[in-house]
């Protein structure tokens, strides 16, 4: 039987689950946790969202969340995936954006249509120059594009806007 842990406690447990492809980020930083629901009977439901439709990390994340909950003695739970409204990079937290940049991945640019149309301003995570150039809109994972910096000449990943 599960102890009736407060939602805050559950949230702090979930914050320990890292994204398998960008391990500096937690699933909470990425905005993957939609809701935490606790029933009167103590049953816990964690509602998550996939990032990209075909992202292979989604299933790993689900398994990691289950393991982390079990590790903290919670066994009476369900993890459910909802796709609507569609995940957006706007849900990445301020903390998440800071961690991305420190890790060497440029965080997604400003919100709005300009970004989706490909007119975003991308800042080099190494030298902070704005003088950067798109190499390819597709990168090592579904969520990243490849850029290079014209000033420090370093190639870098950009977490693209969706």
């Amino acid at each position: 039987m599960v102890s009736l842990a407060a939602k805050d406690d559950i949230a702090s447990i979930l914050a320990l689950v890292k994204d398998p492809e960008i391990p500096v980020l937690s699933v909470a930083d990425l905005g993957i946790i939609r809701r935490i629901e606790t029933g009167e009977d103590g049953h816990l439901t964690v509602v998550i969202t996939p990032t990209y439709s075909g992202c292979p990390a989604t299933e790993v994340i689900e398994a990691d969340i289950a393991n982390m909950l079990k590790l903290h003695g919670i066994t009476d739970f369900t993890i459910r995936t909802e796709i609507s409204p569609a995940w957006t990079t706007d849900w990445i937290t301020t903390e998440g954006r800071r961690k991305l940049e420190e890790y060497g991945i440029a965080p997604p640019a400003s919100k709005g249509k300009a970004a989706l149309l490909g007119h975003e301003e991308v800042i080099c995570p190494q030298c902070k120059s704005r003088n950067t150039e798109l190499v390819s809109e597709f990168g090592s994972t579904a969520c990243k594009a490849q850029y290079k910096c014209r000033d420090c000449l370093e190639p870098f990943d950009y977490f693209k806007c969706v």
């Binding site: 439709s53 075909g54 390819s136 579904a142």
Partner: peptide, 20 residues
Amino acid sequence: LEEDLALTNIGLDLLGQARM
């Protein structure tokens, strides 16, 4: 290489749509 990644990324998006 960039196109190898692009084409497989697009293919992966399509596979994700197909699953849903």
